[in-house]
Lab assay of single mutants.
Amino acid sequence: PDFTLHWNGITIHFKGIDEEQFRHLRELLDRGVSLEELEELAKELIK
Rank of each mutant, 00 (worst) to 15 (best):
L25M: 05
G32S: 05
L29C: 07
S34M: 04
G32I: 09
L38P: 00
L25H: 00
I10W: 02
N8V: 02
D30H: 13
I46F: 10
I17P: 01
R23F: 12
E40L: 07
E27K: 08
I10H: 12
E20G: 11
L28M: 13
R23M: 12
I46K: 02
S34A: 07
T11S: 10
F3T: 02
E27M: 09
G32K: 02
K15W: 14
W7M: 11
K15Y: 14
S34G: 08
I10P: 00
I46R: 03
L25G: 00
R23V: 11
F14P: 00
F22Y: 10
E20I: 11
K47C: 15
L41Y: 13
S34V: 03
T11R: 04
E19M: 04
H13A: 10
E39S: 05
D2Y: 13
V33I: 13
L29E: 00
F22I: 09
G32W: 06
R26K: 14
T11D: 08
P1C: 14
H24K: 12
G16W: 06
F3L: 07
D30A: 10
K47P: 15
E37G: 03
S34F: 05
N8T: 01
F14L: 11
F22L: 12
H6S: 14
K43D: 13
K47N: 15
L29Q: 05
I10D: 05
K47S: 15
E44P: 00
L45I: 13
K47V: 15
E20M: 09
L29V: 09
L35P: 07
E36V: 09
H13K: 09
W7E: 04
I17C: 00
L25W: 03
H6L: 10
F22P: 00
L25F: 08
L25I: 05
G9H: 05
H13W: 09
E40H: 05
I17F: 06
G9D: 06
R23N: 14
H6R: 07
A42E: 03
A42L: 15
F22N: 01
E19K: 09
L38F: 10
I46S: 07
E39H: 09
D2L: 13
Q21A: 12
I10T: 11
I12P: 00
E40I: 06
D30I: 12
D30K: 08
K15F: 13
L35K: 06
L5I: 12
E36D: 11
L38K: 00
G32Q: 04
L35M: 11
I46P: 04
D18I: 04
K43H: 08
F14T: 01
D18E: 06
K15C: 02
L5C: 08
L38M: 05
G16Y: 07
T4R: 08
R31P: 02
E36L: 09
I12L: 12
F3P: 01
E37H: 05
E37Q: 07
L35H: 05
E36N: 08
W7C: 04
L5A: 02
K15N: 13
H13V: 13
E37F: 04
N8I: 03
L35Y: 08
H6M: 10
R26V: 13
T11N: 05
E39W: 12
S34D: 07
H24R: 12
G32Y: 06
E36Q: 10
F3Y: 12
E39R: 09
L38C: 01
E27I: 05
L29R: 04
P1I: 14
R31K: 13
I10R: 06
L38D: 00
D30R: 08
T11Q: 09
S34C: 01
T4V: 13
L25T: 00
E44V: 03
D30E: 12
E27F: 07
H24D: 06
E27H: 10
D30T: 09
K43N: 11
D2R: 02
R23Y: 11
L35W: 10
K43R: 11
R26C: 12
L41T: 05
G9P: 00
W7D: 03
L41H: 04
E20K: 13
F3C: 03
D2A: 10
K43F: 07
T4G: 03
